[in-house]
């Protein structure tokens, strides 16, 4: 039985797809057979971030409608073993996702995979609810600003009331991932601190991803940022994946990087 992880946020543009790509890749790097599903039907971009957009033939909606089978549709990643992508349809809308259809696909994937990562669309409507309905765990992606935190709170409420686990009286595991974190702007009071976000949402902190150009660069190159092990963002995602397996890793990149004497001398 696979563990189903939904990456969700409520608010758009906070880094859900980036996180899905990196967490999924990180899980596969550790030897677990993983599939990342793009639930953002109509606005697909997981395939772009994973750099497999040219290899999309069939998509999630085709599988649901029985127009293709999983073997034909899943795209195997060329860089990391054990990693597969199930792309969204560009030409359909979110009504094409029926609960029975999604359940059938997830059940079939569950037999083969260890982890199923569901990349949720923004919002709290049908698409987002479908992505989180079957989840065992939710990674809530939040930017350190008030509106993003508020939306995350809202989605947590939906998660614990409208998911399959909630309907059975069980609890979906909740993990907080703060992205686009900039300690300098926190210092200046332009951003909420990790502590603020943790206090408002009151869920376990999985990781803090520092704001970095590496993320943008990785997206444009179609390579998940976790593969860029030189970058702080890549390292932070690796830490987060480690914590998913219960490893105790201290959170880093929370403080302003002190420029060394030499760097200051060079004016860098």
């Amino acid at each position: 039985m696979a563990k189903i992880i939904v990456v969700t946020s409520g608010k758009g543009g906070v880094g859900k797809t980036t996180t899905s790509a990196s967490i999924g890749t990180g899980l596969a790097q550790r030897g677990h057979k993983t599939v990342i599903i793009d639930f953002d039907v109509g606005l697909r971009n997981l395939d772009l971030i994973m750099g497999c957009e040219r290899r999309v033939v069939y998509d999630f909606v085709n599988v649901i409608n029985g127009e293709s089978n999983l073997k034909q549709t899943l795209i195997k990643d060329k860089r990391v073993d054990n990693l597969y992508i199930l792309p969204a349809s560009q030409t359909r809308d979110k009504d094409a996702l029926s609960q029975e259809g999604v359940e059938k696909v997830l059940d079939e994937l569950s037999e083969d995979f260890d982890f199923i990562v569901c990349d949720s669309p923004a919002g709290i409507e049908r698409g987002a609810q479908m992505a989180l309905y079957f989840a065992d765990m939710a990674i809530v992606v939040t930017n350190p600003e008030v509106s993003s935190v508020r939306d995350s709170d809202r989605i947590l409420g939906i998660l614990q009331s409208k998911s399959r686990k909630a309907e059975k009286g069980e609890v979906v595991e909740e993990k907080l991932l703060v992205t686009r974190y900039n300690p300098e702007r926190v210092e200046e009071g332009e951003m909420l601190s990790v502590e603020d976000v943790k206090e408002i949402l009151a869920i376990e902190l999985l990781g803090v991803i520092p704001e970095s150009e590496a993320v943008l660069k990785a997206s444009n190159q179609g390579s998940p940022v976790i593969l860029d092990d030189e970058s702080n963002s890549g390292k932070a995602y690796s830490d987060a994946v480690g914590r998913l397996f219960g490893e105790e890793i201290e959170h880093r990149f929370l403080e302003i990087e002190k420029k060394g004497f030499f760097k200051r001398l060079m004016g860098a």
């Binding site: 508020r150 709170d153 809202r154 947590l156 409420g157 939906i158 614990q160 009331s161 609890v171 408002i200 009151a202």
Partner: peptide, 26 residues
């Protein structure tokens, strides 16, 4: 469990005891 934004809890004809936070918008 926390009562999150957008959620509403009503205790009809009795007291209500909440052991977790009540978020903004709840």
């Amino acid at each position: 469990r926390p009562v999150r934004g957008g959620q509403q809890i009503y205790a009809e004809g009795c007291d209500l005891i909440v052991l977790a936070q009540v978020s903004e918008g709840a």
